[in-house]
């Protein structure tokens, strides 16, 4: 077992964001985590990676319990993550950003630089390496977030809405990049996607959250037919129509 989440509970002062969630991920898989807004997807990520401390339950990574580890500790164990929103800042160049990631595994600047350039090359970002984040389009910002995490050489990469805000062409490109990360770098992927259409083609398995509960898990083609899943999504769409 690669990543194991056992009976995880997170309660924000009465609002249960994650209610007894359990699931496993095997090495080499691509797992999608989907669900409507406010389903508790990001909270689950934060509990695994260590931004939140779960109220109960366990997180086990490569046979080692990492429940309650700080984010930097889970990273050192081999879990990388990206954020839904990459903070757009003007203080560091793209190359420097990725070098920080590479410094995670080395103390030598030349080595960090070499590795960062490698990752940038892999993601085809070499031509923007001297720009600052605020000078880049959103698709490139997202890729920098990805590059940073990749530079820490994770074994498991957790991606939070890596395709949100992208147009169809950019989304396609991103999906392609993810596939390459999976195949060439042999990294297990665990991704949150709000839009089903993005996650279905690449995920081998999908986990569905709704209102803090795990309501379904299985192959993508099973999930799209699942009654509860359809209801959760339709319900949200209906509510949206009502608000507008």
């Amino acid at each position: 077992m690669f990543l194991q989440v056992v009976d995880l509970v997170k309660d924000f002062g009465g609002v249960v964001a994650n209610n007894h969630i359990s699931f496993d991920i095997d090495q080499g898989e691509i797992i999608g985590l989907i669900g409507p807004n406010g389903a508790g997807k990001t909270t689950l990520f934060n509990c695994i990676v260590g931004y939140h401390k779960p109220d109960s339950g366990k997180v086990i990574f490569k046979g080692k319990e990492i429940t309650g580890f700080k984010p930097f500790m889970t990273n050192r164990e081999g879990i990388g993550r990206t954020f839904q929103i990459t903070k757009v800042t003007a203080g560091m160049t793209v190359l420097e950003n990725v070098m920080v990631g590479a410094f995670c595994r080395t103390d030598q600047r030349p080595i960090a630089k070499k590795e960062a350039l490698e990752v940038l090359g892999f993601l085809r970002l070499e031509n923007v390496k001297d720009y600052h984040l605020n000078e880049l389009p959103i698709a490139s910002q997202k890729k920098v977030g990805l590059a940073r995490a990749l530079a820490t050489k994770p074994e498991l990469l957790m991606l939070d809405e890596v395709a949100s805000g992208l147009n169809p062409k950019e989304t396609e490109e991103m999906v392609d990049v993810l596939k390459r990360i999976h195949q060439e770098k042999k990294i297990t992927l665990f991704l949150i996607e709000h839009v089903m259409e993005v996650v279905m083609p690449i995920s081998q398995r999908v986990i569905v959250l709704d209102s803090g509960e795990k309501i379904a898990a299985g192959l993508p083609e099973e999930i799209v037919k699942n009654e509860r899943v359809i209801k959760a999504y339709l319900g949200e769409k209906y509510a949206k129509g009502f608000r507008d």
């Binding site: 990273n75 203080g91 920080v100 995670c104």
Partner: peptide, 16 residues
């Protein structure tokens, strides 16, 4: 510098 830019992101990159 990363901590100054974005402390949460810095932590996710293995920085204490």
């Amino acid at each position: 510098r990363m901590i100054k830019e974005d402390e949460d992101a810095a932590e996710s990159l293995g920085i204490d």
